[in-house]
Structure formats: structure tokens, C-alpha cells
């Protein structure tokens, strides 16, 4: 039986914690709008899954082979710490994808409904006006009629 001081370091729980934090890092990365951002949700999930795997390996080593590996206390502490970021990643993944069905929204080839809404200065603006040459008002310089408008619906800040 090997001496206690010769037991191997158990780095698996450290890797697990690192991966758990990496999962959170993926969520932060959305703010810089990187290319291939469509992969980020899955990447964050992958980080969380591997974090769990490494934490499990760490615990198994510390408690299953205590004569080979150190870190009984440490593996438990790191696992408890890592549970929070893993939980957050999983929660964010589920919450961010809870979106209403888009198949009833206007599709390619369909006509969109007309609208008139206030712009940032409170002035009413209609879809017809947006598709017409702009007169050179507060909303920008004089411009010819656009070939198209790009309607960007967003969640807003409240």
C-alpha cells in the first residue's frame, strides 16, 4: 500500500470546476456577438456535461480509490462550488429557448401587416413612410426610396 504522501493528486474536480466556469463563459460570450454564435448554447451545455463527468470522476477517485488518490474533502468542496455555475448554464439554456412558435408569423412570400408607430422622438412613422423616400427629417438625411426595409423586432429593455 502506497504511503499517504505518495498518493496521486486528484485533478479531475479542478477540471470539472474549470469546465463549469467555462459554461458560464459561453453565456458571457454572447454579448460580443462572435461568429458561429449559434453554436454557443450547445457549447455551454457541452461544458456543463463535461464538468459533471469530471466532477464524478474526481469523487469516484477520492472515495473509491483513497489509497491511490488524495482529495476527499477537496473533491466534495469543488463539486459543491461547481454545482452553481452548472445549474445556471442549464437554467439559461432552457430559459433562453422558451420562445413562442414562429410558424404563424409572416413567412417568405407573405404580405406583412401595415403599422404606424412612434419613433424615438415620438413622431408617428408608418410602414408606407419607411418604404417611401425619406424627406430628410429628424430620422436621418434625405434618401431615395429603399428597395426594402429590414424589420428588427427585439425584446427591449423592460
Amino acid at each position: 500500500m502506497p504511503d499517504a504522501t505518495e498518493r496521486r493528486k486528484n485533478i479531475a474536480p479542478w477540471l470539472g470546476l474549470l469546465l463549469a466556469i467555462g459554461g458560464i463563459g459561453c453565456n458571457v460570450a454572447f454579448f460580443v456577438r462572435p461568429p458561429l454564435q449559434g453554436m454557443l448554447p450547445w457549447l455551454s451545455l457541452l461544458f456543463a456535461v463535461f464538468a459533471l463527468i469530471f466532477l464524478a470522476i474526481g469523487l469516484k477517485r477520492a472515495f473509491g480509490q483513497p489509497q491511490v488518490y488524495r482529495g476527499k474533502v477537496l473533491s466534495v468542496v469543488l463539486t459543491v462550488i461547481a454545482v452553481l455555475p452548472i445549474g445556471l448554464t442549464a437554467f439559461a439554456f432552457v430559459a433562453a429557448r422558451k420562445l413562442p412558435d414562429s410558424t404563424v408569423a409572416p413567412q417568405v412570400g407573405q404580405k406583412v401587416p401595415d403599422f404606424t408607430l412612434s419613433d424615438a422622438s415620438g413622431k408617428p412613422v408608418s410602414l408606407d413612410q419607411l418604404l417611401a423616400p425619406s424627406s430628410g427629417s429628424s430620422s436621418g438625411p434625405r434618401a431615395p426610396a429603399p428597395r426594402a426595409v429590414l424589420l428588427i423586432f427585439y425584446r427591449g429593455y423592460w
Binding site: 414562429s102 408569423a105 409572416p106 413567412q107 417568405v108 412570400g109 407573405q110 404580405k111 406583412v112 401595415d114 410602414l127 418604404l131 426610396a145 429603399p146 428597395r147 426594402a148 426595409v149 429590414l150 424589420l151 428588427i152 423586432f153
Partner: peptide, 11 residues
């Protein structure tokens, strides 16, 4: 959601 709408209001 984002829509590109042409001058005849077609998506």
C-alpha cells in the same frame, strides 16, 4: 425576429 420586406410589403 427579423424580416426583410420589399417595396410591395412582401416578406
Amino acid at each position: 425576429a427579423e424580416f426583410l420586406v420589399d417595396s410591395s410589403k412582401i416578406v
